[in-house]
């Protein structure tokens, strides 16, 4: 029974870990039970997921934005490649 009950600190570790690998079932259940009772750990979980979403969204937006290689950089890289081909 002990293994199903975690402290807030342990829950923060487990939630972080769950973002990197699938946890064993008893831990997942332990987290779920704890979260039902603890709004602070719910907030913590929400914060971590928030950060992940934000970073991914920003990265995708950056990839889609219209930035292009400057003419100057293009010329520089082209010179370098020309040298390499010789």
């Amino acid at each position: 029974m002990r293994h199903w009950i975690f402290s807030c600190k342990q829950i923060t570790e487990l939630i972080s870990e769950s973002m990197d690998r699938k946890l064993p079932i008893y831990r997942r259940i332990g987290i779920r039970i704890h979260l039902m009772m603890c709004y602070l750990c719910r907030r913590y979980k929400k914060q971590l997921l928030f950060l992940r979403t934000v970073l991914q969204a920003i990265e995708e937006a950056d990839e889609k934005n219209g930035e292009v290689l400057s003419q100057e950089a293009r010329r520089r890289i082209k010179n370098k490649l020309d040298q390499e081909k010789k």
Partner: peptide
């Protein structure tokens, strides 16, 4: 050079 022409901006982004 043609890689640079075609994919330079994609790689850069």
């Amino acid at each position: 050079i043609s890689w640079l022409d075609h994919y330079g901006d994609t790689l850069y982004r």
